[in-house]
């Protein structure tokens, strides 16, 4: 087992130097980003490490809930930035991420898949929210661009007496599917193309591979559930924003 400490981290910084030097030689304009990014990663993760240590030791439910709320806020803000084609991206992101993650997490607690401890809830919620955030960002982008680029198709359907839901059904389905594609691809190739991050982390931390695999399977199912719920909720809310009560396309 690797003994990980600050010495190992500093040694690993050599890898950053390789990336920095290579990009400099090849005149790829990312030196600043590499420098800032690597330092920022270090500071952010160390800070998070101390925060988690504190929360885990305190065993305070309020601190756990606060952490989840902050994660939801930041993720909703980030996904909301992708809402180029409509207003209210932040609110829609917050609602869909909350519903997706809370239902999934709630079920995992109720079904006793995990125990209600900070050391389970916080990292798993982080995984759920970050993956769902990426999924709804894609759903947002896809719905907006597809509807706008296919105005004639949508309005033809409306002009033939179809409801807004019928006229936009194809775009809604495509957008939700696009949001889910990452988890669907992951499940197809898990363990074959790459070892998933959570599983790798556990193996590196000394957990037996068989146990790590079981946990990873739970993580995959958990992500599937939260991504599906979040993408569907986001798609449902967003698509309605492109139509008014008179079944007119306003996009």
């Amino acid at each position: 087992m690797i003994e990980t400490g600050y010495v190992q981290v500093l040694t690993a910084f050599f890898l950053v130097v390789i990336a920095f030097v290579l990009s400099r030689i090849k005149s790829i304009p990312v030196e600043k980003e590499i420098a800032y990014g690597s330092i920022r990663t270090f500071i952010q993760l160390i800070a998070v490490g101390y925060a988690l240590e504190f929360i885990f030791k305190s065993e305070s439910l309020y601190l756990v809930l606060l952490s989840v709320f902050i994660m939801l806020l930041v993720a909703a803000y980030t996904a909301g930035q992708r809402a180029r084609h409509f207003k209210g991206g932040f609110a829609i992101s917050f609602i869909s991420l909350s519903i997706g993650s809370l239902i999934t997490l709630g079920l995992m607690l109720v079904l006793k898949i995990i125990s209600p401890e900070a050391r389970y809830i916080i990292p798993l919620t982080g995984m759920i929210i970050s993956n769902s955030m990426n999924a709804i960002s894609i759903t947002f982008d896809r719905i907006g661009s597809d509807l706008k680029n296919n105005r004639l198709e949508v309005e033809t359907a409306l002009s033939l007496g179809k409801s807004w839901r019928e006229a936009s059904q194809r775009f809604y389905r495509d957008a939700v599917r696009a949001g889910m594609i990452s988890i669907l691809n992951f499940m197809k190739t898990a363990g074959i193309v790459a070892l998933p991050g959570a599983m790798t982390g556990m193996i590196l931390a000394g957990v037996s591979p068989l146990k790590a695999v079981l946990i990873q399977v739970i993580v995959a199912y958990m992500l599937l559930s939260s991504l599906t719920i979040s993408s569907i909720v986001a798609g449902e809310i967003v698509i309605r924003k492109f139509f008014n009560d008179a079944e007119q396309f306003t996009g």
Binding site: L152, E153, E155, T156, A157, L158, S159, L160, G161, K162, S163, A246, E247, Q248
Partner: peptide, 18 residues
């Protein structure tokens, strides 16, 4: 709207067929 559009049927300049 879904009913009246059937009575006043619009044919577009560029017809869209599904």
């Amino acid at each position: 709207p879904t009913e009246i559009r059937k009575n006043l049927s619009l044919i577009f300049q560029e017809p869209y067929l599904f």
